[in-house]
Design a protein around this nucleic acid. Structure first.
Lengths: 351, 351
DNA sequence: CCGGTTTCTGAAACCGGTTGCAGGATCATA
DNA sequence: TATGATCCTGCAACCGGTTTCAGAAACCGG
């Protein structure tokens, strides 16, 4: 009953030259059964010292590493966490992914990253693909997927989602304090004597953008200033949108001495546009961003920004998903926002 | 002979609420055998129309997606490509990873990304871990691992490595034309009348840094200028190193009117340091970077840089690894370097 | 109307680890 | 020394797909 079954010949590549060793090969080499080797590797039970030594020798000899697919199949887990990002190449996501990787690595998990490209259907495809790949959990980093869908998916796999507030079993959401961050920024500008403060938002219907706009208006009102819709322009979260929106603002009749941008990349664009128009930051216009990307420290001038430590958020997401997997109900919140004052903001010219 | 074997109870989580359907469940529902369902899904053989329809109905009903671990085990492949990056959060790698993901996605592969953190031992751990996870191939994006090790690993799995030239079976290397890029940059500066051109390198023993330095000296020599070691400073590939190195250069007695940096991030730091010292770019000093990161277009002033389309490099790496997996010997080279002239370079003040 | 194809379909082996159960060896106790 | 408790280890079932082989059904021409 050994091998009536002919070699399966997977694909056309044939048996690999360096074909990795199997558990049974190690077992045969060490003169024990596969179960014993497995138990030694996982430390499931104690085995006699002699055996242990010889098995370890055999493992070393073959350079054996248990096949993850087989192990995953048997255990029903893959030690892999799916991550849905939106654009793997944006500095924002880069930092978050680093945090996630760091958080997962130390527990023996690895991230399987996919990009949603800000498209709801791409995102959905990602989630399904990840589930099919049997990830043990999914982290949705700032997605667009509907709450209902997310809850539904949470039935088949634990989910951590950032950027919204949502309660469901086996799901953890972490909301950045967008409004609070905006208020910090605007208050800082008010303190500097600015009264005409413009705002460049992201895509108009994006929840984060909406919240940040809300914080902006609220802080203005608290400062006794009327909200002026002409001082709000629409960007696209990227530098390009920042340039465009800033030019629009400058072309409109409304004057402003300070500019608060929905994120740092938008602020970068804004600074460039101001520079093109011969305006100096912060002399003529103060500029504040949101996110505090690492490179903001090195802008000219260094950009004042609302810090929301994305890296930390990533690490916490990782921690959260692992807790969920362990069956616990984690109570983890996003890190606090905080204003990093640098050189792109200064006293209002006239004041 | 149904189930004398008690439920294995994987972990403590028990059977999941939304436990995904299995092939046999679908088969039972459709009144056929598992083999038939498998064949229909993979299109291995033709089946009668009626069966096909009812099986598809059953699949849809359960929302069935074949378990990737099981499939991987049976097929001996995982449709996953391991990627060893160095720092997932650097803009450089971000762009490369996007390219890789794009290239893989369309062929049904997904990247499993790990960070080597520029440490050779981390990198090695990554590669081993990836192999254990049964990836079908590995892309090493600008690594430090020795050529010999790499060749060794290539015996167990196809490898694409960027940033060096190396020939081995089942291995494809793609070398960026570092020296050529440097020469483009320096020649541009020479054309603008600069004669004192400084250079900030990366970590001193890094192959890319060495090559870029070589291109720099060669272009100088061709321009009839002696190489002056006092005009070379050491950075760390990051903004911080650029700042430090620039300050060192300024403090030294050697004057310079142009500054070529080993990469864009270093150039960002250099610009900041110049700004701090009251020097204007490009009025007092011209600055050129290398990589042409997306954000370089939006620097103040927009940075002149040697473009080496990392995204394209990533896509080609993806294409290369898939070719290797298919058993072919791809002939793919890195994209050409090209100088993007922007506003951080201008005519030499005195000329 | 029958033997020979051709086409489908199902049973079962297999991928490579994990683990419940049971049997043998070892040890302690009466 | 007999006997029950404790340890250790091997057998074999199982995870969930894939694939070979063989048998059944449908189709062919003679």
């Amino acid at each position: 009953m050994k091998s009536k079954f002919p070699a399966p010949t997977p694909g056309r590549s044939g048996p690999r030259p360096g074909q990795s060793a199997t558990l049974r090969m190690v077992a045969r080499e060490a003169g024990v059964s596969a179960s014993t080797v497995s138990r030694i590797i996982n430390g499931t039970v104690k085995v006699s010292d002699g055996l242990k030594r010889s098995v370890e020798a055999a493992i070393a000899k073959f350079g054996f590493r248990p096949n993850a697919a087989a192990r995953g199949l048997a255990l029903g887990k893959t030690s892999t966490i799916g991550v849905v990002a939106q654009a793997i190449d944006s500095p924002f996501y880069g930092e978050g992914l680093r945090g996630i990787e760091t958080g997962l690595r130390q527990r023996g998990y690895a991230p399987l990253i996919m990009s949603g490209n800000w498209r709801i259907e791409d995102e959905e495809r990602c989630v399904q693909e990840l589930i099919a790949r049997g990830v043990d959990g999914i982290i949705v980093f700032a997605g667009r997927l509907s709450d209902a869908k997310l809850k539904g998916y949470a039935k088949s796999v634990p989910i951590v989602v950032t950027g919204r507030r949502l309660r469901a079993p086996r799901l953890l959401s972490m909301q950045i304090e967008d409004a609070k961050g905006s208020m910090l920024a605007v208050r800082h500008l008010l303190d500097l004597g600015h009264r005409q403060i413009a705002f460049i938002t992201g895509s108009e219907n994006h929840p984060d953008a909406i919240e940040r706009l809300r914080g902006y208006t609220q802080a203005l009102v608290e400062g006794g200033i009327d909200f002026n819709p002409n001082l709000v322009a629409v960007g696209d979260w990227h530098e390009e949108g920042g340039v465009r929106a800033t030019l629009e603002l400058l072309d409109s009749k409304s004057r402003f001495t300070a500019l608060f941008c929905v994120n740092d990349q938008t602020a970068y664009g804004a600074c460039l546009a101001l520079y093109r128009k011969g305006l100096s930051v912060p002399h003529d216009v103060s500029v504040i961003g949101f996110d505090d990307l690492p490179s903001s420290t090195y802008r000219l001038p260094p950009l004042t920004s609302v810090r929301q430590s994305i890296g930390e958020l990533g690490e916490r997401s990782a921690q959260g998903i692992l807790e969920l997997i362990a069956g616990r109900r984690p109570r983890i919140a996003a890190p606090d926002v905080e204003l990093m004052v640098r050189e792109s903001t200064g006293r209002c010219p006239g004041s």
